[in-house]
Design a binder for these strands. Sequence first.
DNA 1: ATCTACATTCTCCCAACTGT
DNA 2: ACAGTTGGGAGAATGTAGAT
Length: 336
Amino acid sequence: MKTLLTQFQTYLNSMTGLQVEGRPLTAAGLPHYLGQAYALYALEIEGRSVLGIALREPEGFQPAQFEKQLPRLLNVSGPVDGYCVIASALSGYVRQRLIARRIPMVIPGRQINWPMLGAVVEPRSSDKPLPVPGDPLKPATQLVILHALNSGETQPVTARALTQTLGYTPMTMSRALDDIEANNLGRVTRVGRERQLDFPDGLPALWQRAQPLMRDPVRDTVRVWKEALPEQALYCAGESALARRTLLAAPNEPVWAIGRHAWKPLAKTLEPIPIPEPGAVQLQLWRYEPGVLASDGVVDPFSLYLNLRETRDERIQMELDAMMEEIHGQRTGPLS
DNA sequence: ATCTACATTCTCCCAACTGT
DNA sequence: ACAGTTGGGAGAATGTAGAT
């Protein structure tokens, strides 16, 4: 005869189509009487980890008592997305009580009562906001992708390597990888303890898919005196950058970009200038560090595109498109 | 090395206030 | 009544500490 666990797996899979994995959990640290009453399983249902609690003696089962014992059982499993009572049989009365208390229950071959299958069955409300596919990418995530696009690198990158090149903490990089996974923009694989990121569909496909999720790198623009700014923190940006990269004429007012960290100390001391003046410049305050992607002191073409794509001016649109064409040509051109 | 949970800082937006 | 400013609060983005 099949074990209760395999019965559970095949039954749930046939009823819901969900992928169900499971293995017995050794109940270290569990009081003896609880170990006698319940067999615990670590279940994996569509990527969610769930604690399976099988009743060894369904006859003596008491839902109210069970609810008190639940915290200790969840303690054994570590953090999980939910739990579920598994029993070979239960009296009608007990089934009713479980439903009333909203305790998820599966009786293989007979009954499933699991209101939130597919949603999170909360043992505790997990306050972790999972990345939502379709939301705008976070600045750090956008930077990870733009870095790949700019460097042309298709080899897998580790989270640690990104930490160093992009200047964020490991935690932020980890979340950026989550973000990329949730939006299906790249492939994240585990190599031992490490997570590695690559883009198997190629960079042109990445740009096409990621672009609608990306935001203008510029959070705000202010007019200030050029001489009040630290030269080494500035990068040629906006129309000025486009003029540097194409045949477009330079704008009347030079445009520069600056990152968060360099801007913070300046924010308090600098007075904004209300009208154009000789010696004044447009300063773009970026959501991420422009210097990471810049070359020759000019912001990278992808960020530049994201910055100017809404511009109405036809000359700018033409040069922008020409610039992106050229990049595309470099990537695929001579070899293909 | 990465993750969980909590802390801190930053952004953004709207309501209330100001002066015209 | 209206435009412009301000300030405060909610939520986003990132960081820190500690566990695994």
